[in-house]
């Protein structure tokens, strides 16, 4: 059925969401060299201020349940915003705004817990909330609590996502799939114990180390949130007219995420991460990038996982060690399956 109504899948990252944004929200623009606007479809926007760039980003956060193993919606809001700024090269966020939309009847204690998480995450990321807003909606008009955030910071050098070419290498800053599988397990009450933990974390310090170590050899940087590593790589492959080959054996996946993926029939490559970035570097910079990442606790498990190729533009291919297959581009929220 193709009607004009928005479906859940339009919000799940991947091609449907990109189509929607291109169709409705982003019309034209892109002709001012001193501005990066929404038409670029990057993690944030930027305007040139003197010899620097002022980077900004906006983000809305809905997660069920709001408290999940390894984090909660407050930590998610701060980290998501900080990470979007960092992915553009703004690794010292000057400040955030947070809007809280809360459902009538919601518990004050839960709001306190969320605020405590916001404060703690800000401290970790070295930033602060500068302004906020609170709205209450009627019972059933919103599901519990929704946060909306914005952030801003300066970047000396903007990291764009259109500099990737054949021969470049793909690095992931750590284990894949933890957040999405932890939330899925909690949401559907799948009883997978507490070994599965969200990876939600601010990546700005890690990115600063990386930028310092590899400089201009860093040619792509994206946090692998909705749609996971797969969505990010498809987006990069699409924007750069290149293909990507992933080495299945090299993918860092925690035992818990691997086991959960097998049990639920869900590929860790297509579920969200909230503390991991896909890094594209020139081939000569791989070792320096990995060394810089691994020196930081958040990049301890960083690994080189693939290569950019000229063929198969827009596609991501997985070399399984047995043969090759296409990596599915995520379409809609993955659901646990039994078949």
């Amino acid at each position: 059925m193709s009607d004009d109504r928005i479906k859940m899948a339009h919000g799940a990252g991947g091609s449907l969401m990109r189509d929607l944004i291109g169709d409705v929200f982003v019309r034209g623009g892109g002709d001012d060299p001193d501005v990066v606007g929404p038409e670029a479809m990057e993690d944030g926007g930027a305007v040139r201020v003197g010899d620097r760039w002022l980077v900004t980003t906006a983000d809305a956060h809905v997660v069920a349940p709001a408290f999940f193993p390894g984090g909660d919606i407050g930590r998610l809001a701060v980290c998501g915003t900080v990470n979007d700024l960092a992915m553009m090269g703004a690794t010292a966020p000057l400040g955030l705004t947070i809007t809280v939309v809360v459902e009538e009847g919601y518990g004050r204690d839960d709001l306190r817990r969320i605020q405590a998480s916001i404060d703690a995450a800000c401290a970790e990321a070295g930033t602060r909330v500068l302004a906020g807003d609170t709205k209450v909606m009627g019972k059933g008009e919103v599901d519990g609590v929704v946060l909306s955030s914005a952030g801003f910071g300066f970047a000396d050098r903007l990291v764009r996502d259109r500099g990737m070419r054949a021969g470049d290498r793909v690095i992931i800053t750590g284990s894949i799939g933890d957040h999405g599988l932890a939330v899925m397990s909690a949401r559907h009450d799948l009883g997978l114990g507490d070994q599965l933990q969200s990876d939600v974390a601010p990546l700005n310090t890690l990115v600063a180390r990386l930028m310092e170590a590899v400089g201009d050899d860093l040619v792509g940087l994206k946090d692998a949130t909705r749609g996971g590593v797969s969505a990010v790589l498809h987006e990069l492959a699409d924007k750069n007219g290149a293909g990507v080959v992933l080495d299945d054996v090299a993918l860092p996946i925690s035992d818990a995420a691997r086991a959960a993926g097998e049990l639920l029939g869900v590929d860790p490559l297509v579920v969200a991460n909230e503390g991991k970035a896909v890094v594209i570097v020139r081939p000569g910079a791989v070792e320096a990038a990995l060394a810089a990442l691994r020196a930081d606790p958040l990049g301890r498990d960083a690994a080189a996982i693939g290569e950019v190729i000229a063929d198969h533009a827009g596609r991501v291919i997985v070399d399984t060690g047995f043969g090759r297959r296409l990596l599915a581009e995520p379409r809609g929220e993955p659901l646990p399956r039994i078949c």
Partner: peptide
């Protein structure tokens, strides 16, 4: 995205699996 038959909807439908992973000898080494 807009399945016509169930084999394209189900994650273990032949059509869905082929669409996503392909019976794709051209990917071979």
């Amino acid at each position: 995205d807009s399945p016509v038959g169930a084999s394209m909807v189900s994650s273990e439908g032949m059509c869905r699996i082929w669409f996503q992973y392909g019976g794709r000898p051209e990917l071979g080494p």
